[in-house]
Nucleic acid binder design. Structure first.
Lengths: 235, 235
DNA sequence: CGATTAATTGATACTTCTCAAATCCTGTGG
DNA sequence: CCACAGGATTTGAGAAGTATCAATTAATCG
């Protein structure tokens, strides 16, 4: 899975803009460049495995991933997604705990591995880098709170409607207007927290009601306003 | 609500041990001491209000709090609890976002307010303090992931059983063996993510089955093993 | 003590899950 | 490029789990 992007410098990395690495100096970026390893993961490949102790983090350069936990009787629960610019595995490294979830590539994904040691060196060196990491962690914590409230209080129908909107705002749409992410019905179910059959039935209902257009795994949102209303989404 | 504990120094604070403040030097602790304000909150008093922008964090010295969000139609969702040694409001401050949840005292609570400026000054000064904050945030993020998985996959009965065990491990028990926290049935419901009536019925069942002893709001766990099994709690 | 608020119980309706069966797709090897 | 195996999707029927509404009783607090 290793690839020859390793010689590419973080200094010129276009995907760096707006990420936590953006506050680093050229010299600090060079430190990463000198120690990183660039890798490619195929669709479906597990990037990090729940329970393991990671030796560093991946900086996602291109692709999409799901973060998922094992639940009751092996059922998968998708906790969140990652896309270009995101750091994978930061939670476990920074909390000094084993990975609380696995990370799996949803499509071919390129990422740079930053070893633990260099990560901590940068934290030591740069308070603003630490600050960025805290910001990300705390932002994700706020998101988690929202998800908790939704799971606890919304019906499956409401959660599915909201999740479709969330998928669109996270991954955007392709040129033909479909959600720019390919998930199986089971994955959608594991995200919404319901049975696969329920997901299928509700998606069909949404389709009947002309809220969305379905074509295999391609999903196009048509009536965003109605979806938001149906999902009790206010913001 | 202000109280005259303000003149107490953080250096001698017994509650400081094992908290994020424990890595600070005496000089740094003095900085906090010089700028903090000690306050007391009565039971039921809102300490921080969802949506507001906090000007600092509270270091909880004595008492218990709930962190809760407004959900559908004003229904409260309890996200987590705080107790002695915990920092309140750190998520909003560190992510530079409004408070994603309110914090309310469950009993008389004493806390020291640390202004934003001094907090950030310490982050600038002390990488190990930053590291501690990250650790807490990332740990809480892992907890949130567990809660998400439970809410998505477990039945109400399972969640209630698990939550009783969680309450015991969080707050411990009083001398007579009851959970050392007093919650209404509604609050338990808002924690478990169910209707108050369902909580009442299930608690009665647990009582019938001799898993717990109920006496008003006092709850004593009797069969922890069976509760864990019933709640699919493995760790 | 009233007056609220909290807790409890019952009846009913609704949502969601589970199991089963059929059909459709998709990736793969020939 | 095609056929095919195995997985994914779909649909139906029935069971189970929860919520909701209503009515009572109990507890708590000025």
């Amino acid at each position: 899975m290793e690839c020859n992007d390793s010689n590419l410098s973080c200094l010129n990395c276009k995907e760096r803009e707006g990420t936590v690495l953006d506050v680093l100096t050229d010299k600090q970026l060079q430190l990463i460049t000198d120690n990183k390893t660039c890798v490619v993961f195929k669709k479906g490949q597990i990037i990090m495995h729940e329970g393991n102790n990671p030796n560093g983090v991946y900086c996602l350069k291109h692709g999409k991933c799901k973060t998922h936990k094992l639940g009751i009787e092996g059922k998968e629960q998708i906790i969140r997604f990652a896309k270009s610019g995101d750091l994978l595995g930061y939670r476990a490294i920074l909390s000094d705990e084993p990975l609380s979830a696995s990370i799996t590539a949803l499509e071919e994904t390129r990422a740079c591995f930053i070893p633990r040691q260099e990560l901590f060196e940068l934290i030591e060196q740069s308070p603003s880098f630490s600050m960025q990491l805290m910001k990300v962690a705390c932002h994700d914590l706020g998101e988690a709170g929202r998800i908790i409230t939704n799971l606890a209080q919304k019906t499956v129908r409401e959660r599915l409607a909201e999740m479709l909107l969330l998928l669109e705002s996270t991954f955007g749409v392709t040129s033909d207007g479909n959600l720019d992410v390919s998930l199986t019905r089971e994955e959608i179910a594991n995200l919404v927290g319901t049975a696969t059959e329920s997901t299928i039935r509700l998606l069909s209902e949404f389709k009947e009601d002309k809220l969305i257009v379905l074509k295999g795994r391609k999903i196009k949102l048509v009536e965003r306003g109605k979806l938001a209303k149906l999902g009790n989404v206010f913001d």
